[in-house]
């Protein structure tokens, strides 16, 4: 009977501990988001983004915005678009190769290397991006300096493993039956891939891309080493410096001159938080619902 009561005590302790852990985690997350909202929500207004500039002329790039987040947002947007533009074709193709064509040994080596790439700290990718810049500057063109283009290439490497993996997993998880259906009708491997497999794997692939976009939007370490600056305005070309939302938050946190600037920092943090959570939610919804929706309309 003594054993039973000790067992009962351990059981109680585990249950209490787990509730405690849950409570701590929820408290922390509420504190983080709550604090940001408490400090930053009141800054939410067009002025946060456009400052004292007229929104229309800022959007049309007629006037430069000095005291708002507009250049940083534009920089982040361009950066995301460019990196995803590099990474989607290469990552999807590589994922398809891994799922559909690669055999035993090749697949093992590729898998290991992609795991490694996925595990590399983003600052290491940034350092690589920077050394690539040095290399290109010395051997290709003296005009090349850290810039939007090189940042986007380095960031593409950061998100490549995500896209490869989600594509691969989405394809490999399809039932064997679906794979055989098209082939039994005389489809070639490629026809089967494009007409049967990819449409069914689309939901998984899209949600992977959205998570990759979130990763691009929030990453600070890569761009810190490859061309982001605190003040550059809207980038004039892909070979120029640029601003970005996460770097702005980082910069403000240590270099703010007055409470006004700090408030903009809070605003930027909320904005970035919402952008990332929004992408996350969309990815989640797509993963759950897309398959039926896409196909019922065909």
């Amino acid at each position: 009977m003594k054993g039973a009561s000790v067992g009962r005590f351990v059981e109680r302790a585990i249950i209490t501990f787990s509730w405690l852990a849950g409570a701590i985690l929820l408290t922390v997350i509420c504190a983080v988001t709550g604090y940001l909202c408490f400090k930053g929500l009141k800054t939410m207004s067009p002025a946060l983004i456009f400052g004292s500039t007229d929104p229309m002329s800022a959007l049309l790039l007629r006037q430069r915005v000095f005291d708002g987040l507009f250049p940083a947002m534009a920089g982040t947007l361009l950066l995301v678009l460019m990196s995803v533009g590099w990474a989607i074709p290469i990552g999807t193709a590589a994922g398809i190769y891994l799922a559909e064509y690669a055999g035993g040994g090749t697949k093992k080596i590729f898998n290991l290397l992609f795991d490694l790439l996925a595990g590399l700290p983003s600052i290491v990718i940034g350092l690589f991006g920077f050394s690539l810049t040095l290399f290109l500057n010395r051997h290709v063109s003296k005009e090349l300096h850290p810039c939007l283009l090189l940042s986007s290439i380095a960031l593409a490497f950061l998100i490549l493993p995500y896209i490869i993996r989600t594509t691969q997993i989405a394809l490999e998880n399809l039932p064997v039956q679906n794979r055989l259906t098209g082939l039994a009708m005389g489809a070639t491997r490629l026809q089967n891939l494009f007409h049967v497999l990819l449409p069914q794997a689309l939901a998984g692939m899209v949600s992977g891309v959205l998570l990759a976009i979130g990763r691009c939007a929030e990453d600070t370490a890569v761009i810190m080493l490859t061309g982001v600056v605190a003040s550059a305005g809207v980038p004039r070309s892909i070979l120029s410096h640029y601003e970005a939302l996460p770097f702005y938050i980082f910069y403000i946190s240590s270099q703010y001159a007055d409470q006004q600037e700090l408030a903009t920092g809070y605003g930027a943090a909320i904005l970035l938080l919402f952008i990332c959570l929004f992408l996350f939610a969309v990815a989640f919804v797509i993963k759950k619902n897309l398959p039926c929706q896409v196909f019922s309309q065909r």
Binding site: V32, Y35, E218, I249, F250, S253, S254, A269, L272, C276
Partner: peptide
């Protein structure tokens, strides 16, 4: 999905 830089920012001020 919460950005690292946001954690850092809140870390500094909270």
């Amino acid at each position: 999905g919460i950005p690292t830089v946001v954690y850092g920012f809140v870390g500094i001020f909270l």
